[in-house]
Amino acid sequence: MANIKQAKKRVEINQKKRTHNIKFKSDMRTHIKRLEKMIAQNDAEEAKAALPVTFRKIDKAVQHGNIHKNRGNRQKSRLTKKVNELSA
């Protein structure tokens, strides 16, 4: 543990930021898993309805810097492709 007051404060701030970031990432992963579960069950209507919500969660994680922009775009692209394959 740090001895200097400023270093102690830094540790506290980093811990708060870490827990805040975990919430965004966890929420994003949860929505992705739900959508993939719908896709696995061939539930096209539910999957189409859940897709924009999942996109919002991914975009929020990108916006907060939890994941890289390219990773977010890649995930959205793959999920869209899977949902479109259900409809076809």
Rank of each mutant, 00 (worst) to 15 (best):
A40G: 07
I58H: 00
K5M: 07
T54E: 00
K81A: 15
K60S: 12
E36K: 09
V53I: 11
A2D: 08
T30H: 08
N21M: 14
R29K: 13
I32V: 15
A49V: 09
K23V: 13
K17D: 10
K69C: 06
A61R: 01
T80I: 11
I22R: 11
A61Q: 02
N70S: 11
K16I: 12
R10T: 10
R74S: 09
A49N: 10
M28F: 06
E46W: 00
F24V: 08
M28Q: 03
K9A: 14
E45K: 07
A44P: 00
N14G: 09
N14E: 15
D27A: 13
E36Q: 14
A88N: 15
F55H: 08
A49R: 12
V62L: 03
I58Q: 00
D43Y: 00
D43A: 03
E36Y: 02
E36L: 09
K60L: 14
D43V: 00
N14L: 12
K23E: 14
T54I: 01
I13G: 03
K17F: 07
K5Q: 14
I58D: 00
R10D: 09
N66V: 12
L86M: 09
I13F: 06
L86N: 02
E45D: 09
L51F: 06
D27R: 10
A49M: 10
T80C: 13
